[in-house]
Nucleic acid binder design. Structure first.
Lengths: 147, 147
DNA sequence: CTGAAGTATATTGCATACAATTCAATTGAG
DNA sequence: CTCAATTGAATTGTATGCAATATACTTCAG
């Protein structure tokens, strides 16, 4: 192996490991904040979508969250068990399952309203740097997604 | 809820979602490259550490990878089953388990040597931007880890 | 020396991720 | 119209993450 290639196989030099670790630590920060709402982070993401658009189907939700039905089906069943959403088969096309917020699900939004600011404060980074970080992540995602 | 707070509860504006999605897509890119080596991404991270330091214990590995024994113990058992590492209790302190590379584990490094460059190329981003992204992730991790 | 406190790993339980497969429903080419 | 191809969800199986707990071992105060 060349010295150059050798040199790249070092944990601390790997962008992906940094991204991977930062992402997990951020989710951990959310975990504390979400505990009073009895939501996990992926469940919170699903609720974010539904708070914007109170009804959509599994496929549409999956496209927004970049997750497939293997992940979403059990997650949505848990949200249903908590009384936050309901799942109903479409009359027009029985393959499609519509997800919509219950009143309880809508009400939960108020309890979540402080979370974005709380996370921003915990990050301790200036807003400009966070926005730049977000843009780079979005670009990277896009590049890898179109391969 | 204030209009300002309302405005933050939008999926597409959340840094964490961008980080979360980019991280998962990057791991997906690794998955293809790692398939011939029969390694998952977290297993590859563990091997990266071991390729630098062929013997260390579970606690030390956990500190480097930011993972606990609940994740590492089964992962290391899988690496052991593949014949890449061996796990032995310390004689001096029976609580400690030493992990070390087998010859087969050492040999696998050659097959991994092309991966960092391949990932860099797939990202399609200039090196400078990737380095900046890495630095921001490292800083964010550090901030959240010291709370 | 001895029991309490601390430490390193393992186990358990739950919730993702995601590939692969299945199944029912729908669509579309001929 | 008809059957093969496609589609949307669900299911299955594997591998993380991680909190909580258990266990065995070590250390240390008295």
């Amino acid at each position: 192996m060349s010295a150059e290639k050798e040199d790249y196989l070092v944990l601390e030099k790997q962008l992906c490991f940094s991204l991977y670790s930062a992402s997990h630590r951020l989710v951990r920060s959310y975990r504390q904040l979400l505990e009073p709402l009895d939501l996990t982070y992926p469940q919170y993401l699903a609720m974010l979508v539904l708070w914007q658009q109170s009804e959509l189907n599994v496929k549409e939700l999956g496209e927004k969250l970049h997750l497939d039905s293997g992940t979403l089906t059990p997650l949505l069943k848990r949200l249903e068990n908590k009384g936050l959403v309901s799942r109903t088969r479409s009359q027009l096309d029985e393959r499609v399952v519509h997800i919509h917020l219950t009143e309880q699900g809508k009400a939960l939004k108020n309890q979540a309203s402080h979370i974005p600011v709380a996370i921003f404060q915990q990050s301790g980074l200036p807003l400009a740097q966070l926005l730049e970080l977000k843009q780079s992540c979005d670009l990277l995602f896009q590049q890898l997604d179109t391969l």
